[in-house]
Amino acid sequence: DVEEQIRRLEEVLKKNQPVTWNGTTYTDPNEIKKVIEELRK
């Protein structure tokens, strides 16, 4: 469920934690926001 994935990513973003997505770890909040934007398409 895309909405659920977006919610999880936004939670991690608020906590300033790194996100691992498709084998890539993102630590930059701007990169995480880009992943969220991609999911919304």
Rank of each mutant, 00 (worst) to 15 (best):
Asp1Ser: 14
Asp1Glu: 11
Asp1Thr: 12
Asp1Ala: 09
Asp1Val: 10
Asp1Lys: 09
Asp1Asn: 11
Asp1His: 09
Val2Asn: 06
Val2Pro: 06
Val2Trp: 15
Val2Leu: 09
Val2Ile: 15
Val2Asp: 03
Val2Glu: 03
Val2Met: 09
Val2Arg: 06
Glu3Trp: 15
Glu3Gln: 14
Glu3Ser: 12
Glu3Tyr: 13
Glu4His: 06
Glu4Thr: 09
Glu4Gly: 04
Glu4Arg: 05
Glu4Pro: 01
Glu4Val: 05
Glu4Asp: 11
Glu4Cys: 03
Glu4Ile: 08
Glu4Tyr: 06
Gln5Ala: 12
Gln5Asn: 09
Gln5His: 11
Gln5Asp: 09
Gln5Leu: 14
Gln5Gly: 04
Gln5Pro: 02
Gln5Lys: 07
Gln5Thr: 14
Gln5Tyr: 09
Gln5Trp: 15
Ile6Thr: 02
Ile6Met: 04
Ile6Gly: 01
Ile6Val: 05
Ile6Ala: 03
Ile6Trp: 03
Ile6Phe: 03
Ile6Leu: 06
Ile6Arg: 01
Ile6Asp: 01
Ile6Tyr: 02
Arg7Ala: 13
Arg7Thr: 09
Arg7Val: 05
Arg7Lys: 13
Arg7Asp: 05
Arg7Pro: 00
Arg7His: 07
Arg8His: 14
Arg8Met: 15
Arg8Gln: 15
Arg8Leu: 14
Arg8Thr: 13
Arg8Ile: 15
Arg8Val: 14
Arg8Asn: 09
Arg8Glu: 13
Arg8Asp: 08
Leu9Asp: 00
Leu9His: 00
Leu9Gly: 01
Leu9Cys: 03
Leu9Ala: 01
Leu9Phe: 10
Leu9Tyr: 02
Glu10Ala: 05
Glu10Ser: 04
Glu10Asp: 04
Glu10Met: 10
Glu10Trp: 10
Glu10Gly: 04
Glu10His: 05
Glu10Cys: 07
Glu11Ala: 08
Glu11Ile: 06
Glu11Trp: 04
Glu11Arg: 04
Glu11Thr: 07
Glu11His: 07
Glu11Met: 10
Glu11Gln: 12
Val12Gly: 15
Val12Met: 15
Val12Arg: 15
Val12His: 15
Val12Ile: 14
Val12Ala: 15
Val12Asp: 14
Val12Pro: 03
Val12Cys: 15
Val12Lys: 15
Leu13Arg: 03
Leu13Phe: 08
Leu13Tyr: 04
Leu13Pro: 00
Leu13Thr: 02
Leu13Ser: 05
Leu13Asn: 02
Leu13Asp: 01
Lys14Asp: 12
Lys14Asn: 13
Lys14Thr: 12
Lys14Phe: 07
Lys14Gly: 10
Lys14Leu: 10
Lys14Cys: 04
Lys14Arg: 12
Lys14Ser: 15
Lys15Gly: 10
Lys15Glu: 09
Lys15Phe: 09
Lys15Trp: 13
Lys15Val: 05
Lys15Ala: 13
Lys15Met: 11
Lys15Ile: 09
Asn16Lys: 08
Asn16Val: 04
Asn16Ile: 04
Asn16Tyr: 06
Asn16Glu: 02
Gln17Cys: 08
Gln17Val: 12
Gln17Pro: 05
Gln17Ile: 13
Gln17Asp: 08
Gln17Leu: 15
Gln17Gly: 11
Gln17Met: 15
Gln17Lys: 09
Gln17Arg: 06
Gln17Thr: 10
Pro18Ile: 13
Pro18Cys: 07
Pro18Lys: 11
Pro18Ala: 11
Pro18His: 13
Pro18Val: 13
Pro18Gly: 08
Pro18Thr: 12
Pro18Trp: 10
Pro18Arg: 05
Pro18Ser: 14
Val19Ile: 13
Val19His: 04
Val19Lys: 01
Val19Gly: 06
Val19Met: 09
Val19Pro: 03
Val19Phe: 12
Val19Tyr: 13
Val19Trp: 14
Val19Cys: 05
Val19Ala: 07
Val19Gln: 01
Thr20His: 14
Thr20Gly: 02
Thr20Lys: 07
Thr20Glu: 13
Thr20Ile: 15
Thr20Ala: 08
Thr20Val: 14
Thr20Asp: 10
Thr20Asn: 13
Thr20Ser: 10
Trp21Met: 06
Trp21Gly: 02
Trp21Ile: 13
Trp21Ser: 01
Trp21Arg: 00
Trp21Asn: 02
Trp21Tyr: 13
Trp21Ala: 03
Trp21Val: 11
Asn22Trp: 06
Asn22His: 11
Asn22Ala: 05
Asn22Gln: 08
Asn22Ile: 02
Asn22Tyr: 09
Asn22Asp: 11
Asn22Lys: 09
Gly23Lys: 02
Gly23Gln: 04
Gly23Ile: 02
Gly23His: 04
Gly23Ser: 04
Gly23Arg: 00
Gly23Phe: 03
Gly23Ala: 03
Gly23Pro: 01
Gly23Asp: 05
Gly23Asn: 06
Gly23Tyr: 03
Thr24Trp: 06
Thr24Cys: 05
Thr24Gly: 04
Thr24Glu: 07
Thr24Tyr: 10
Thr24Phe: 12
Thr24Ile: 15
Thr24Val: 15
Thr24Pro: 01
Thr24Gln: 14
Thr24Asp: 11
Thr25Glu: 11
Thr25Asp: 04
Thr25Lys: 07
Thr25Val: 13
Thr25Phe: 14
Thr25Pro: 03
Thr25Arg: 03
Thr25Tyr: 11
Thr25Met: 11
Thr25Gly: 03
Tyr26Gly: 01
Tyr26Thr: 02
Tyr26Asn: 01
Tyr26Ser: 01
Tyr26His: 03
Tyr26Arg: 00
Tyr26Ile: 14
Tyr26Leu: 14
Tyr26Phe: 10
Tyr26Asp: 00
Tyr26Glu: 01
Tyr26Pro: 01
Thr27Met: 05
Thr27His: 14
Thr27Ile: 05
Thr27Val: 12
Thr27Gln: 08
Thr27Trp: 13
Thr27Phe: 12
Thr27Leu: 06
Thr27Tyr: 13
Thr27Asp: 07
Thr27Glu: 09
Asp28Trp: 03
Asp28Thr: 08
Asp28Ser: 04
Asp28Arg: 04
Asp28Val: 03
Asp28Pro: 01
Asp28Leu: 05
Pro29Asp: 04
Pro29Gly: 06
Pro29Ala: 09
Pro29His: 10
Pro29Cys: 05
Pro29Thr: 08
Pro29Gln: 07
Pro29Phe: 11
Pro29Glu: 05
Pro29Lys: 08
Pro29Arg: 05
Pro29Trp: 08
Asn30Arg: 12
Asn30Met: 13
Asn30Pro: 02
Asn30Phe: 12
Asn30Ser: 11
Asn30Val: 14
Asn30Lys: 11
Glu31Arg: 03
Glu31Tyr: 05
Glu31Gln: 09
Glu31Met: 07
Glu31Lys: 05
Ile32Asp: 00
Ile32Val: 09
Ile32Glu: 00
Ile32Ala: 02
Ile32Leu: 11
Ile32Met: 03
Ile32Asn: 00
Ile32Pro: 00
Ile32Gln: 01
Ile32Lys: 00
Ile32Phe: 06
Ile32Tyr: 02
Ile32His: 00
Lys33Ser: 09
Lys33Phe: 06
Lys33Ile: 14
Lys33His: 09
Lys33Tyr: 13
Lys33Asp: 03
Lys33Asn: 07
Lys33Thr: 07
Lys33Pro: 01
Lys33Gly: 09
Lys33Trp: 14
Lys34Arg: 12
Lys34Glu: 07
Lys34Pro: 00
Lys34Tyr: 08
Lys34Met: 10
Lys34Gln: 09
Lys34Ile: 06
Lys34Thr: 06
Val35Tyr: 04
Val35Thr: 03
Val35Glu: 03
Val35Met: 12
Val35Ser: 01
Val35Ala: 04
Val35Asp: 01
Val35Leu: 15
Ile36Pro: 00
Ile36Tyr: 02
Ile36Asp: 00
Ile36Thr: 01
Ile36Gln: 00
Ile36Gly: 00
Ile36Phe: 04
Ile36Ala: 01
Ile36Arg: 00
Glu37Thr: 05
Glu37Lys: 04
Glu37Gly: 03
Glu37Met: 06
Glu37Phe: 04
Glu37Ile: 05
Glu37His: 06
Glu37Leu: 08
Glu37Asp: 12
Glu37Ala: 12
Glu37Pro: 00
Glu38His: 10
Glu38Gly: 07
Glu38Ser: 10
Glu38Met: 07
Glu38Ala: 14
Glu38Asp: 14
Glu38Val: 04
Glu38Trp: 11
Glu38Ile: 07
Glu38Tyr: 09
Leu39Ser: 01
Leu39Ala: 02
Leu39Arg: 00
Leu39Gln: 01
Leu39Met: 06
Leu39Asp: 00
Leu39Glu: 01
Leu39Lys: 00
Arg40Ala: 04
Arg40Cys: 02
Arg40Thr: 05
Arg40Gln: 07
Arg40Ser: 05
Arg40Pro: 01
Arg40Ile: 08
Arg40Lys: 12
Arg40Glu: 04
Arg40Asp: 02
Lys41Pro: 04
Lys41Glu: 12
Lys41Gly: 11
Lys41Val: 10
Lys41Asp: 08
Lys41Arg: 09
Lys41Ala: 14
Lys41Phe: 10
Lys41Tyr: 11
Lys41Thr: 12
